[in-house]
């Protein structure tokens, strides 16, 4: 927001509409509480007192219709993968996906298993991958900051939310 913003005296701020919209969006990322395995505990701890994702305006929602961000935390089996796709389609645009932990990234420890999906990018598009098994809460906080950066770069008016604009 900084580059397009001028601060004039007497409390007047001039900025682009894109900048304001993106700034508002990034300050209230509501994430879908979607823990599938071990990483879910770290996801819970991240919402707890020490890491406190609330600082970034990120709070959990129980339903996909109210959330902007899906944090897939943990191993995804084939049985679950179809539900993930369904939930992803239930979320309203613009929507983002964080793949948290090795299992969600590529199958991780369970790569040789017969029932585990080898990476959720085979089912839904992923914006940020977080490595670790499980990643620390700080890593998840950084992932949220990365999502905020992606949000700030988007040309919201131009694409009208129909197509994501990666620069």
């Amino acid at each position: 927001m900084k580059e397009n913003t001028t601060i004039i005296e007497q409390g007047v701020i001039v900025s682009t509409i894109d900048g304001v919209l993106n700034w508002m969006r990034k300050s209230s990322i509501w994430y879908l509480l979607f823990g599938t395995a071990c990483c879910a505990i770290e996801l819970m701890q991240a919402g707890g007192p020490r890491t406190d994702l609330d600082r970034f305006g990120a709070v959990f929602r129980a339903t996909p219709r109210q959330s902007d961000l899906m944090i897939v935390a943990g191993t995804v089996t084939y049985k679950m993968a179809e539900r993930i796709r369904l939930l992803y389609h239930q979320m309203a645009e613009p929507k983002y996906v964080i793949s948290m932990g090795s299992c969600a990234n590529c199958g991780g420890l369970f790569q040789r298993s017969y029932s585990v999906l080898k990476g959720i990018d085979k089912v839904v598009p992923v914006d940020v991958y977080i490595a670790g098994c499980p990643p620390r809460t700080e890593a998840l906080a950084e992932g949220i900051l990365k999502i905020q950066k992606i949000m700030m770069r988007e040309k919201w008016l131009k694409t009208r939310g129909t197509k994501r604009n990666f620069i």
Partner: peptide
Amino acid sequence: GYLHRGIEKL
């Protein structure tokens, strides 16, 4: 079975 990872086979 939504988290059946086949640990016994592994």
